[in-house]
Simulated scan of single mutants.
Amino acid sequence: MKEQKFKHGIFLFISLVVFVLFILAFVNIVDELQEDEIKHFDDAVFTFIQSLVSDRLTAVMKVITYLGGVQWIVLFTLLVIILLLLYKKYSLALFLALTTSVGGGFNWVLKWLFKRERPDMEALIEQSGYSFPSGHSMGSFILYGSIAFILFRAFDYRYLKWISAITGGLLVLFIGLSRVYLHVHYASDIIGGFTAGGAWLTFCIAFYIHFYNKRRWKKHS
């Protein structure tokens, strides 16, 4: 029991460090955004992405970006929650429901606070609302990160754990890239979404693990 509690303490400490790093990264982006120092970075990314535009790639990016949209996130979240309930994983179902729904609310609040307009260029898809932080990036980081965490706990084999984590990470990355490619977000919006989503997901995972272990230890005491 002492060894388990020691490992639990190490996990919480690492979680705190990761959480703080995400927060500091987000604050740094906000500072540069308010001082207009990030414009050169955004312009450079746009210039590079523009050189890759083609009809075929645009079609692919539209599919990828849909996987980070509100409609798909809500539908996919409900599907996973139903599966978790069928397998009687009630705590994980609650974890996923609260993490994604509250995270979506946070994104709305942040957009309302910063009120950054979208890129002043012809978008390849229709998109409304404010730009920073990217809702697709933040939402996909939270959703697919949560599912990767759930699968990481569900799989017994280490290689399956890492496959789920890497797959989720790549999907989130490509969703972020698709938003810049389709001209509906600046690159800094994407990074802002990743850092905000990462901070929230780290907090939720640490919170879940902490109370899950406390309840388990209480049963065995």
Rank of each mutant, 00 (worst) to 15 (best):
86 L>K: 07
86 L>M: 13
86 L>Y: 14
87 Y>A: 13
87 Y>P: 00
87 Y>I: 05
87 Y>M: 09
88 K>V: 09
88 K>M: 07
89 K>A: 15
89 K>S: 15
89 K>T: 10
90 Y>M: 10
90 Y>K: 14
90 Y>N: 15
91 S>N: 14
91 S>P: 03
93 A>D: 04
95 F>V: 04
95 F>W: 05
96 L>I: 02
96 L>G: 02
96 L>F: 01
99 T>A: 01
99 T>E: 00
101 S>C: 07
101 S>L: 13
102 V>T: 08
102 V>P: 01
102 V>M: 05
103 G>K: 03
104 G>Q: 07
104 G>K: 09
105 G>C: 09
106 F>W: 11
106 F>N: 07
107 N>Q: 09
107 N>I: 10
107 N>C: 11
108 W>T: 08
108 W>Y: 10
108 W>L: 09
108 W>A: 07
109 V>L: 15
109 V>S: 08
110 L>V: 11
110 L>C: 10
111 K>S: 11
112 W>H: 08
112 W>V: 02
113 L>W: 14
114 F>C: 05
114 F>M: 05
115 K>F: 04
115 K>H: 11
115 K>G: 06
116 R>F: 13
117 E>T: 12
117 E>S: 13
117 E>H: 12
117 E>P: 02
117 E>C: 01
118 R>P: 07
118 R>F: 15
121 M>T: 08
121 M>S: 04
121 M>W: 03
121 M>E: 09
122 E>N: 06
122 E>T: 07
123 A>W: 01
123 A>R: 04
124 L>I: 02
124 L>C: 02
125 I>P: 00
125 I>R: 00
126 E>A: 10
126 E>V: 11
127 Q>P: 00
128 S>T: 13
128 S>Y: 02
129 G>Q: 06
129 G>E: 07
129 G>I: 06
131 S>G: 09
131 S>V: 08
133 P>T: 08
134 S>H: 08
134 S>V: 06
135 G>Q: 10
135 G>D: 11
135 G>R: 05
136 H>V: 08
136 H>G: 09
137 S>F: 12
138 M>E: 13
139 G>A: 02
